[in-house]
Amino acid sequence: MGRCKDCKYWESHTDMRNKSWQTCEAPQWVDYAAKIGDADFAIYADASDDTGLQAGLKTGPMFGCIKFEASGDDFPQPQE
């Protein structure tokens, strides 16, 4: 699987104090309830009241993540 440092969407930024950081410019902004493609990912944000902003990364079921770890439910444990 590819890595961010080699991706066309990985962009470097530097501010006026020479502080540097990188961001992924690939995800689009969507509504929380919006449907996205099976292998896509997007960002949603909601600030509809005065309690604060909620935001997250929304993924389709086939999105490939380099941080993947199998959940315990995916692989049944053998019965003794």
Rank of each mutant, 00 (worst) to 15 (best):
W29N: 09
A33Y: 13
F75N: 07
E80K: 11
S48M: 10
D6F: 02
S20W: 00
M62E: 09
A26C: 12
G2N: 10
D74V: 13
C65K: 05
R3E: 04
K35H: 14
D46F: 08
D15Y: 11
D31G: 12
A70S: 12
W21C: 07
I66D: 10
W21P: 01
M1F: 04
M16F: 08
A45E: 12
I36Q: 01
L57G: 04
K5R: 12
A33P: 01
W29I: 07
G64F: 06
W10Q: 00
D49I: 04
P76N: 05
C24M: 06
A33F: 11
R17Y: 13
D31R: 15
K58C: 03
L53Y: 01
G56Q: 03
A42M: 03
G64E: 11
Q28T: 11
D46T: 06
Q54I: 12
A42E: 03
T14C: 13
D40C: 03
G2V: 02
A55I: 08
W29H: 13
W10L: 00
L53P: 00
A70I: 02
V30C: 02
F68M: 09
T59H: 06
M62L: 13
H13F: 15
Q77F: 11
G2W: 03
V30R: 00
Q22G: 05
A70C: 06
A26M: 12
G52C: 06
K5D: 06
M1V: 06
Q22S: 10
Q77H: 11
K19W: 07
K58W: 08
P78S: 14
E69A: 14
D6Q: 05
C7Y: 01
E11T: 07
D73P: 01
E80I: 07
T14Q: 15
P27I: 01
P61E: 03
F63D: 00
C4G: 04
K58D: 00
A70R: 09
G56P: 02
L53D: 05
G64C: 08
T23F: 04
D6N: 13
A42D: 02
L57D: 01
Q79F: 15
K5L: 06
A47Q: 15
V30F: 02
T14F: 06
K5T: 05
N18G: 09
D38G: 14
C7V: 00
Q54M: 14
C7D: 08
G56W: 05
C65N: 11
P61A: 07
E25C: 09
A34N: 10
K8F: 01
C24R: 08
S12F: 07
D38F: 02
P78W: 09
E80G: 15
H13C: 11
Q77P: 06
T51C: 09
M1S: 11
G2T: 10
Q22T: 10
H13S: 14
P76S: 06
G37A: 12
M1Q: 09
P27N: 06
A34C: 09
F41D: 00
A39M: 05
S48E: 09
G37K: 07
S12Q: 12
S12V: 01
C7L: 04
